[in-house]
Structures are given as C-alpha cells and as structure tokens.
Amino acid sequence: MKSTFTSLLFLFTVTLATAQEFKTPVDYLNYIGKETDVITRTTWKYTSAVAHSKNSRKIDVTRKTLVRSIQTAAKKIEALKEGYKGDVEYKNQLLAFLSISEKQINQEYEKIIDMQEVAEQSYDFMEAFILARDLVNAKINEEVDKLNANQKIFATKYGIQIGEDNSELGKKMKISNEVFENHTQLYLIFFKVNFTESVLMKAIAENNLIAIQQNSNALEQYSNEGLDKLKTFKPYKNDLLLVNATKKILEFSKKEALEFAPEVIGFMMLNQKFQESKKTMDDKATKSRTKAEVDNFNLLVNELNNEVGTYNKLSTKFNTERSITINSWNTAGTTFISKHVPID
C-alpha cells in the first residue's frame, strides 16, 4: 500500500471593490499568495507522485522538495517585519501554519514511515498507521482553516472581497483527497481478510489444528462483515472497479473458510491418525502384529494415499484462485487511483 499525504491549501481569489483604494493591501495579499502558491504547487507534485509513481525514492524527493519550499516561503514572509502598515496578525498566523506544516510533513511523516514498515504485521498496526497518517492530514487542514479565517478577517478589515478558490490546482487537490479516502476505506476491508488469511496459511503450514479452526472462523466473520459494509459503501463517481475486486476477494475468503479449511482439518486429522497407527505398528515386532491390526493399517494407508491426491488438487485450486484475487485487487487499486487522481 502506498501511503498518502495530502493537504489542501485554499488560495483565495482577491478582487478589488475599488482597485485604487485597496491597491496596497491587495498587493500585500498577492505577495503572500505568490509564496503560498509555490507551496501548493509543490504539494500537488508530491500528491501526484504518490498517486502515479511506485518509486519510493522519487516520492521522498518530492516530499523533501515540499519541505524546502515551506522553509523558503517562511523566510520571505518572516522578513515582512511590519506586515501591512504594522498589521502582522495575518502574517504571524501564516508563519505559524508554515511551521506546523513543516513539522508535520518532515518530522511526523518520518514517524509514519516507521509505522508503515510494520503496518502489515497486523490489522491493528495497519489501522494505527492509517489513523496516524490521517491525523497529520487533519492537523494541517485544521491549520489551513485557521489561516483562511484569518485571511478573511484581514480582507474584511481593509474592504477586500474574498472569493473561494476555483483554480484547477485547487480542484485537483480536492479530487485527490476524495479518491485516496475512498481507496483507504476499501483497502482496510481488503487488508483485514487478507491478513487473517495469511495467518491461516501459516497455521496450515505448521499443522496447527486449533489455530486453523480459530482463523478460519475469523476469516468467515471478517468476510461477512466486509460484504455487509460493501452494501452501503458509496464508490467514488460510481466507479465499481475496486468495489467489485473487494467483493471478489471477500467471497473467495469466505469460501476458503467454509470449504477449504474443513478439508484441511479433515486431511490433517487423517494423517495424524495414520502417524499414530504407524508408530503403534513400528513399536511392535512383526510376529506380534495381528492380522486385524495389519489389515486396518493397510486400509488406513490406502485411504491416506487416496486423500493425498484429492488434497493436493484442492490446495492447488485454492492457491491459484487466491493469487489471482489478490493480484486482481492490487491491480484494481492501482488503476483506480491512477484513473481518478489527475496527472500534471
């Protein structure tokens, strides 16, 4: 899973009620707007890299570029000692926003990268990683709201009319946030069953009958929960590509829990019975074995030999289908993001 970090810096369109009268305060806002526009464009490049690139190095380079653009803008704005004719309230609010943004993108994001490295070790870890990532986004967006409110206060004070940002870049950022949020919701549904399935496969490899039963029960439960969530899920722009891929893997996981796991348990119990019988026969001298014991053991050998072929075919069938559904989901996820997140 690719981590996502996007924030939407709303840049307002400044229009003059009387151009000559408000020329100086508008110039002040335009100067600040020019600096913040650089940050917004760099943020978009980072967002686009996350969406369309699998090169983690390239993604991190764009993140570091974003940090540098924030630092550069902060220095220029900090140099405006007097703000506008001694009014420094908006300037100070912007500097506070830039400081918090730099910390979140630089320091907090590093922590998130560390969390991402262990996220796939459990569903709880993955959920914690996504929560931490979303909290960073929420913190920055909260500061954006404060900044925008302060900009409006400044504009009102000097009679400047502020219009909402309808720029193409602003629209792209908004779309990106919506697409990533939609993807994340489906990813968590997918990951929960996929992780549980991996634990089930480990239990099978270790011949742990108790763990197989426990995890097959959990897999059935999580599959049903996921299918219920899909019934009310609202896909982005009614695009069912990733929804259908999620549904397929949930249906497969449920079938795996209800059909494959019981067969595995049955085969392992038969094999266990064979091993115990074999040990009993091996512990006895050939002359001490009764005809009934030998006949029963031979019947068990024949039964096991017959079941081995059936079990191997079943395992191959489910292994193939599992690989196909997982690959299909990953492909659908990549396609979904690439399709809907705008390209530069």
Rank of each mutant, 00 (worst) to 15 (best):
F5L: 03
S323T: 13
I153H: 10
K229V: 06
E120Y: 15
S122M: 09
F154E: 02
G170V: 13
A332Y: 09
I175Q: 09
L300N: 01
Q214E: 15
V243S: 04
I112D: 14
Q275F: 02
L9V: 01
M281E: 00
F274K: 08
L258N: 14
V88P: 01
N298D: 00
A73S: 04
I39S: 00
G163V: 14
N298L: 01
S7H: 08
T15C: 04
K254D: 01
I210C: 10
I77H: 04
D344L: 15
N207C: 11
E127M: 08
G33M: 03
L186M: 10
K247A: 06
K64D: 06
G33R: 07
A132F: 04
T290K: 01
T286Q: 12
K2I: 05
I113K: 13
Q213K: 13
I59Y: 01
K85L: 07
S198H: 14
R41C: 03
A74L: 13
Q116W: 11
F154A: 00
E263H: 02
D37E: 03
E197Y: 15
D165S: 11
S53K: 05
T40V: 11
Q20S: 03
Q272T: 04
G309V: 07
A149I: 15
S323W: 15
N92D: 08
I324H: 11
T43S: 04
I337P: 13
G163Q: 12
F318D: 08
S7Q: 07
T47M: 07
V308Y: 00
E225G: 13
I249Q: 10
A17P: 07
Y46I: 04
R41K: 12
S198T: 13
I204W: 02
Q107E: 15
T316L: 12
K75T: 00
Y158I: 06
I189W: 04
I326H: 08
K34R: 05
K171V: 13
D114N: 13
A119L: 03
E307F: 03
S3I: 08
E35I: 00
Y84Q: 07
P25L: 00
T331I: 09
A132Y: 07
A285P: 09
T4P: 10
E197H: 14
